[in-house]
Nucleic acid binder design. Structure first.
Lengths: 153, 153
DNA sequence: TATTGTTATACTCTATAACTATA
DNA sequence: TATAGTTATAGAGTATAACAATA
């Protein structure tokens, strides 16, 4: 019985992604990256990366919030927040005040300039998300947010 | 008219996250991180990070796929794939074969050991995702995947 | 001339250990 | 003794430039 002749291996014309597309983690990451890509373009004018934006927005909406509370909310580590906070402070967007009940902590507050910038930036962020999610109806988008939050909240 | 006495600034008891929770990017990232956290735990036994898993799975389901096709599909950069591919090859999970039509490229193929490992790993990945998405009904999960894909596909 | 795969390297992001000041 | 904030540093992940081989 003769051995089979050397197999000719075929090329892939179209990549079959059906399996990985069944995975929530894969799909969530792809959407996350799609949003970040547009975010970096549109928010460059405000010199805000996604993490800067999240931190500054939480400070605007939570006057007196501490670094530790920001870490807990956003899943950041304290050492990685130090430079970010100092950067926002040097830009005159926020300022530290003594915490009313805890001498170790600082309460973070947006300045008038910080509030004005974030008012614009939040409008831009919402607009950019409208574009990224343009293929979704208002109802679908609402459902999407609700289901995402149901997973991690 | 006396100057106002130094303002006492309040502390934040509960963080108000209502604004950022309206953002698709924020929610998608949170879910992505929630899945990755469990993924790293459960897949450590297979020594597969999320990116290793995605690459190996695509190779299993697309015998003869090239590095460049993997990069295009997963949004990776060629230089960052070289070490990953070599690692999978050294572990005996995949092998390179000459591409049938393009002498510059290699076709990537899973070995028997690679196919066996990925059969287990894909079962584990699906199981772990079931746990992460446990708060969702089957119907809700299907809707979530469909809406996520509608955004980026 | 363009593309695949590769090397080298830089940059960013994330994680760990240890310190201080205060609770 | 524990916690908030900080410093220094290590590690992982991501990005750019340049090259050889082939199209």
């Amino acid at each position: 019985m003769p051995t089979a002749s050397p197999t000719q291996h075929a090329a892939v014309d179209e990549v079959d992604t059906r399996y990985i597309e069944t995975l929530l983690g894969y799909n969530a990451r792809r959407v996350s990256l799609a949003v970040i890509e547009v975010f970096l373009q549109r928010m460059a004018v405000y010199k805000l990366r996604p993490v800067d934006f999240s931190v500054a927005s939480l400070i605007v909406h939570n006057p007196g919030i501490t670094s530790r509370q920001l870490c807990g909310t956003l899943g950041l580590l304290p050492p990685n927040l130090v430079g970010l906070i100092n950067g926002l402070e040097k830009r005159g967007l926020i300022r530290k005040r003594p915490h009313p009940r805890d001498g170790r902590a600082s309460g973070l507050h947006a300045t008038a300039a910080g509030m004005a910038l974030m008012r614009e930036a939040e409008t831009a962020a919402t607009a950019l998300e409208d574009e990224v999610a343009a293929r979704l109806t208002a109802s679908e988008r609402k459902t999407l947010l609700r289901l995402l939050q149901k997973v991690y909240l």
